[in-house]
Design a protein around this nucleic acid. Structure first.
Lengths: 190, 190
DNA sequence: CCTTTTTCTTAACCTAGGTTATTTTTTCCC
DNA sequence: GGGAAAAAATAACCTAGGTTAAGAAAAAGG
């Protein structure tokens, strides 16, 4: 169970005592996923915050024509959830799937809430995490409104250099909002 | 100074004692804006969280062709900021403008930080606010990736019924991601 | 190492939405 | 209330990106 990565991730924003670290780590439950294994399906309630230690997850929706739209990738050192479902505890709309053999650490909703009360620093930690996620989401929205597919791809390359080489192109195409066919056309002419 | 609306906004997520309420209210500075007056320009540092009590603000960017892209509307009872600039205290990319005579209450970055330490409930409050904003932003992103302009407009109407009638159509067009000309064409055929 | 599945490419054709330009309507504000 | 400014409508034409279909290349996984 790779808790080093997790503790370093936390230490970027808050400082924990050894006791607090131990208490926190005791709450995290490890899980391994095979390639293509689903962590969460649309219609289910998201009951955990998920921290990735190895491999890669992706979250996506299915539209009414059955096409997938990638919302997020989660390589090691990232947190992921169906945030809507997690905070409301109602059935969500996202699928979360392992793109390769993946290892995660899970924190249950109940334990996370408890942690907020017991150690307020964790409320700060997750506030900061969500603030950053919100800023990224807004920036991506503006990029989708104002840039061409070509430019969005360039930004993707800058932001996730390691994913560009390791992920199937069709997944990147979906993330930046074009079809694999158009993505292919675009790559030829650039 | 309309602090009732603000206190009710806060009370949706946390419970404050009368003393805490008074302490908090003392930190809020009122400001009035005329129609078209700018609260924030791209390149400036966003130094406050802004709560709208009357009128309406909008945030937008300018792209390299000089076109505006509306990121958010803030009618009464909403919080708004250039979140990137506010959390990093670096120059931002957003313009925030009053669409009509508007009244706001400002909370400085320093006071907000102080408040997190003094009354941890406020850290909870802003965590929850940002979580909800993040969920909305992600949903809007997915809508932009998977729906037609027509469908995005329908969703806008459901979500902001009061804005549909009060805002200029070109602003709504910008928010849903189309030109005013196309918006006009779309409205004729529907 | 071989078979199955998935991914990638190509190409012809199509469409949602953009661009440019002009006119009409509405709103602002003195 | 009236002149200026902003918003809205219309129309002809344009293009980024989508669709369909089919074959080629690459991985996955036994």
């Amino acid at each position: 169970m790779n808790t080093d990565l997790l503790l370093k991730n936390i230490a970027k924003h808050i400082q924990l005592t050894p006791t607090e670290q131990a208490h926190f780590i005791a709450l995290m439950k490890p899980r391994s996923l095979k390639r293509k294994e689903m962590m969460l399906q649309a219609g289910e309630v998201s009951r955990h915050s998920t921290f990735v230690t190895k491999g890669c997850l992706r979250s996506y929706t299915l539209d009414k024509n059955g096409y997938e739209h990638v919302l997020a990738f989660a390589p090691p050192d990232w947190w992921i959830a169906d945030m809507y479902s997690f905070i409301s505890q109602k059935p969500g709309t996202l699928y979360i799937e392992a793109m390769e053999p993946t290892e995660v650490l899970l924190l249950s909703k109940a334990d996370q809430q408890q942690l907020y009360g017991d150690i307020p620093k964790f409320e700060r930690f997750f506030r900061i995490i969500v603030e950053n996620a919100f800023v990224s989401s807004q920036q991506r929205l503006l990029d989708n409104l104002s840039l061409t597919a070509q430019e969005r791809f360039r930004i993707f390359c800058e932001k996730y250099p390691s994913l560009v080489t390791s992920l199937p192109r069709k997944q990147i195409a979906s993330y930046i909002g074009v079809t694999p066919e158009f993505f292919s056309k675009m790559m030829k002419s650039a």
